[in-house]
Amino acid sequence: MRWIKRLCSLLFFCLVIAAGIIGFQGYRDYREALEGKSVEQMAYEIESQENYTSIDELPQTYVDAVLAVEDKRFYSHPGIDPIAIGRALVNDIKAGAYVEGGSTITQQLAKNQYFTQDKKIVRKVAEMFMAFKIESVLDKDKIFELYVNSIFFGNGYYCVADASAGYFGKTPAEMNFDECTLLAGVPNAPTNYNPVASPELARQRQAQVLEKMEKAGYLDKTETENTAVAE
């Protein structure tokens, strides 16, 4: 029994050392990224782009749909969501692979603006540090704005205004319920859920968006059942 206890102690010690090394490397990568571009500069670069859309110009349905599918606790967490991370960890362990990341909208903004798209744990730690920094500098509405104005919507569209104009021939403010809930599902997998390239998959994703909106409290069951989704 003694050797088992010693082995467990050794394994625990190794895990602590490994966690410390990963944390240090992640923090180092975060500091290097921040030195290359401040949060204020990042925000300015996105805001200066043509067709930048403020949150006041977005339909509430679209905002609700994005929050429901991407980060339903966005307005209550400090940049990372421990509940989502825990759920993702369980699902990853069950799948035996990295299938879910548990990233918040703030983390996704950090990843897209500062880091590569690889799924290494050190990058994930750096992304978390950057998410905390972004939240300390910008308010929630601004973070949401920057996110929807800099993500890929497929078909060559990299902001909500371009996607709305390209897919529907409208400004974001003019989108109806159907268009809002359709567009909100696209960034999860733009190639697959692109309504031009894959209209059927886009509609299937839209059904998931509606289900998540209901679960998050943005729609009641009657509204969901009565919502006519164009085929």
Rank of each mutant, 00 (worst) to 15 (best):
R2H: 12
R2V: 12
W3K: 10
R6F: 05
L7W: 11
S9H: 13
F12T: 14
F13I: 10
C14M: 14
V16M: 15
I17Q: 14
A19I: 08
A19Q: 11
I22Y: 11
G23W: 03
G26T: 11
D29F: 06
Y30V: 07
Y30F: 15
E32Y: 12
E32I: 15
E32S: 13
E32T: 14
L34Q: 07
S38N: 12
S48I: 02
N51D: 14
Y52Q: 09
Y52L: 06
Y52F: 15
T53A: 05
S54A: 13
I55W: 03
L58C: 03
Q60S: 13
Q60E: 14
T61L: 06
V63I: 14
V63T: 08
A65S: 12
A65K: 09
A68V: 02
A68G: 08
V69N: 00
E70Y: 00
D71S: 10
K72H: 12
K72Q: 13
F74T: 01
Y75T: 06
S76V: 13
I80E: 00
I83Y: 04
I85W: 05
I85T: 08
G86F: 11
V90L: 13
V90H: 08
D92G: 13
D92C: 13
I93N: 03
K94I: 10
V99D: 09
V99W: 07
G101L: 01
G101N: 02
G102N: 09
S103M: 02
T104H: 04
I105D: 03
Q107L: 05
Q108P: 03
Q108K: 01
Q108T: 01
K111T: 10
N112L: 04
N112A: 10
K120P: 00
K120C: 11
R123G: 09
R123Y: 08
R123H: 08
V125Q: 06
V125D: 03
V125S: 07
E127F: 04
M128Y: 03
M128C: 05
F129Q: 07
F129N: 07
F129I: 04
K133A: 10
I134R: 03
E135V: 02
E135S: 08
V137W: 01
K142G: 02
I143K: 00
L146H: 07
V148E: 03
S150E: 04
I151M: 11
F153L: 03
G154A: 05
G156N: 10
Y157Q: 04
Y158F: 15
C159N: 15
V160T: 11
V160Q: 01
A163D: 03
Y167I: 02
Y167E: 08
G169P: 11
K170N: 05
K170S: 05
P172M: 06
A173P: 01
E174F: 06
E179H: 01
C180P: 09
L182N: 10
L182K: 07
L182Q: 11
G185T: 02
G185K: 05
G185F: 01
G185A: 02
P187Q: 02
A189F: 04
T191N: 12
N192D: 10
P195W: 07
V196W: 05
E200G: 04
Q204M: 10
R205K: 11
Q208S: 14
Q208A: 14
V209A: 06
L210F: 02
E211Q: 14
K215A: 15
G217K: 04
L219I: 06
T222H: 10
T224P: 00
E225H: 05
N226A: 15
T227K: 09
A228V: 14
A228T: 13
